[in-house]
Amino acid sequence: MKTLRRAVPLLALAALAAAGCMLTSGQFVATYNLPDPFDVNSIAFAGTSVDLNTISEYKDHKDELKRVEDLALVGNFTNLAFTTAQLEVWIVPDGSLTTLTPQQVKDNGTRLWGPLAVAGNSTEKVDWDRSSALFVGRQALIDEVKGDGHFALYVLANGGFSVRVTQGTLIVVVGAAI
């Protein structure tokens, strides 16, 4: 009986020791605000450079970053054209490449998110839950988050388009040691 009485606390201690940093970790939300407003159209096409190192939640946990737990791109997406737009967001690993053409974006990047259908002259508010379901290229963003944290984002749409993104924010939930 004495052995048993000692066994459980010892097992618990052993489990805690084995757990190590597993227990001293947490999930932290980092948010990166895109330019507001972020105007994109098929004539004056351009991307935006994202440097996660400029936000403290990311910078503070970057060295201990173990896992990307959740991703979202939220904001108000306004279609300024008359016809319905199928919006997509693409990621290009090199954060300095913000002046590519749509074809170059497709050649050098990865579709990250979308399509999101936005009717002509209307606005779609995309919240966290909806955005999470729109992600198709999670791994590409995870690689960037775990890498240098510096990349470029592009908004693309079908045909001739004109889109305004307001209060656009990239949300990254990182799993990191504390």
Partner: peptide, 26 residues
Amino acid sequence: TIEASPGFEVTREGSDVNTFGVNVMV
């Protein structure tokens, strides 16, 4: 719910967590 940008709040639904296992107790 977090404030993603000033005046713009977004909500993430909580997870449904299902756990099965075995406990050993003294």
